[in-house]
């Protein structure tokens, strides 16, 4: 019996993606703690391993050895299934992300759509977990998360639509392919398509923060208001999986920003393009995400909706109109 080589390739990629997602989740926690520490003029983790590099391992072991309590009165099915439902779409998103010209698990023609579709499932898992855990704080958090995601999906997708209009494709590899050859070709500086492109990048970035529930939009967790929001009742690794999914989502969001706006694996000076440039850009964006978290206070829920409906959505529509007008004219 022979196995199709494509299947083997896909399997290898899947394992690689899961490892990548898990490693990222673990080491982004380390990065976050280190970065927060230095921003606050302290060291951060330092005891476990050199520079605290083994800290994620220790944390993981700690989380895994904890008892998985299912509190009385919860909906056991929803409660158990929710972390998985949050984690799987996060991993699925990686399938079609091109890290370089060849390093892509499955180059879908509708890759862009697939990533955003998977990203939206994430909120469903949060909602189920929050509702299932029979906690008032969690329910408040779930209500917030859902309307937050609805509100931020719109400006995000509208900006992406304007990009698709410029690129004429939803294939991520092709979108990057059009931006190759130096930073002046990148979409963020594509003033010929729309003079508002840097603003569009900002909008995308802000929406990405909101979609991944990162500070200052961490309405779901909001520890000073809702204790831990949707995760309040989750013990041990149940919480750990939510945590990993959050970081996996950040990686996806930053990858998408890199692909759509920053030319993916392209070198800014047109030399040696490759996966290293992709990772460099992506990790810089992640660094920024963490940097933002440790700088700002949290917005309120209505402040967040105001921002979306009153500022981001109008501007993204202006950008869309401008792009279509420019495309028509030139």
């Amino acid at each position: 019996m022979s196995v199709h080589p494509e299947v083997i390739r896909l399997l290898i990629f899947l394992v690689g993606i899961i490892a990548f997602a898990a490693l990222n989740a673990a080491y982004l926690v380390w990065l976050e703690r280190k970065e927060a520490g230095h921003i606050q003029r302290r060291i951060g983790p330092k005891e476990v391993g050199p520079f605290g590099l083994l800290q994620p391992l220790a944390d993981g072991i700690k989380l895994m050895t904890k008892q998985l309590i299912v509190p009385a009165g919860v909906d056991p099915v929803l409660f158990r299934i929710a972390p998985i439902l949050v984690m799987i779409p996060a991993i699925m998103g990686f399938v079609t992300i091109p890290f370089s010209e060849t390093l892509v698990a499955r180059n879908l023609d509708i890759g862009l759509l697939a990533v955003f579709a998977f990203a939206s499932v994430n909120v469903l898992g949060l909602l189920m977990g929050a509702w299932g855990s029979r906690n008032k704080y969690a329910v408040i958090s779930a209500a917030r998360v859902v309307s937050q995601n609805v509100a931020y999906e719109i400006p995000m997708l509208v900006t992406v639509v304007s990009l698709v209009m410029v690129s004429h494709t939803m294939n991520l590899t092709k979108i990057v392919g059009q931006q190759l050859g130096g930073f002046w070709h990148w979409n963020i500086f594509n003033f010929a398509a729309s003079p508002l492109m840097p603003v569009a990048f900002l909008i995308f970035f802000v929406c990405m923060l909101a979609e991944t529930n990162r500070a200052p939009f961490d309405m779901a967790e909001a520890e000073s208001e809702l204790i831990a929001g949707a995760f309040t009742e989750y013990p041990g690794m149940g919480f750990g999986v939510f945590f990993m999914a959050e970081y996996a989502n950040i990686v996806i969001g930053c990858s998408m920003a890199t692909i759509l706006f920053l030319g993916g694996w392209d070198c800014p000076f047109g030399l040696y393009p490759g996966v290293h440039w992709f990772l460099l850009k992506m990790y810089f964006l992640i660094f920024t995400v963490i940097w933002i978290r440790w700088t700002y206070p949290r917005t309120t829920f209505y402040g967040l909706l105001n921002l979306s409906w009153k500022i981001l959505i109008p501007i993204s529509f202006v950008n869309l109109l401008l792009t279509s007008a420019m495309l028509k004219v030139f």
Binding site: E35, H38, I39, R41, I43, W291
Partner: peptide
């Protein structure tokens, strides 16, 4: 401006 301040402190030595 806020980001500028925090990144400035990021590169300063720790005080703890």
């Amino acid at each position: 401006v806020g980001l500028g301040i925090t990144i400035k402190y990021f590169f300063k030595p720790v005080v703890t």
